[in-house]
Amino acid sequence: MLKLIQNEWMKLMSKKATWIMAILLVVAIVGFTGLSKLSERFTDTTWLEDMEADVVQMEEQLASPDLTDDERADLEAQKQGLEETIATNEEWNQPGSRESIIVNAFGIMLLVTLFTIIASAGIVASEFSQGTIKMLLSRPVKRWKILTSKYVTILLFGLALTVLTYVFTIISAFIFFPAAEGNSIIWSGSDLAVTAVWAKSAYMMFLSLMNVFMISTFAFMVGSVFRSTSLAVGLSIFFFFTGSMIVLFLEKFEIAKYIFFAHDLTQYEIGFKMLESNTMALSVAVLSVYAVLFMVVSYLTFIKRDVTA
């Protein structure tokens, strides 16, 4: 089995497309991090300072004894509104730090998802389109072993891209951004201790990777059932992008709970649940059922198929 995985990995790594994807990924990571540094420099914060000056002025006015009760209440309300605006904007305008970039590394997993889908869709389908499937299946190796080696290779590929993403995000965060001032950074509207950044970011990457595996398993199934790379890529990306909309449409119905797009695992950490009723346990259960279903369909069709191509 190890030899078979070695084979699949060798084939994947011999394709130009694989390297182009890896290079694009690195360029995107370094580029985005650099850009966010650049945009920080141009961010106009003078209006915030103006607001702060206004507040100071209001406090002075409030201090004078000439005000009627009505005027005083009015002014108090105005001041409070301003203060709230300042508070929220300060939160968002907190200067970028190494830690905030690292903890948000999972954002680039969108690309990892895309690339893993492409590799997954083609790993079985391309053998058929190249005609090499005939060479592959007339060997003293059972078909389920060949399919397993391909699936494991896809999981490894997804993992490799994820590690690449994480490492390069950390490197570019260290290049472009200073360490956070103080002991906490703001993450998803709340405070996060700087010391917890590594655990948090790694956990987020792990959850994103699970999402990558799910959609790749789907692409793997479509690719091995229909033997068409483009169909598998198309369908997977279509569902990947419209999945949350579909869930939104069906939100009112019980069935929404059982759609696999409703169970993006990162939702529990971001604090924005797709469905009120969602829990981590439910999501894991639903995703597991789907994963098993996809694999069973893949294996059955691959093992039973008469190769006529």
């Binding site: 030899k3 084939k11 011999s14 394709k15 190249q130 005939k134 060479m135 007339s138 060997r139 003293p140």
Partner: peptide
């Protein structure tokens, strides 16, 4: 099947790899 050598129609190889890697690939099987 381990006693059988097969050339089915035109031998379709992995064109993006060298001949040697192709042989290595099949040898591992």
């Amino acid at each position: 099947i381990s006693k059988v050598g097969v050339i089915v129609e035109n031998p379709e190889m992995y064109k993006f790899m060298s001949g040697y890697k192709n042989l290595l690939h099949f040898a591992r099987m």
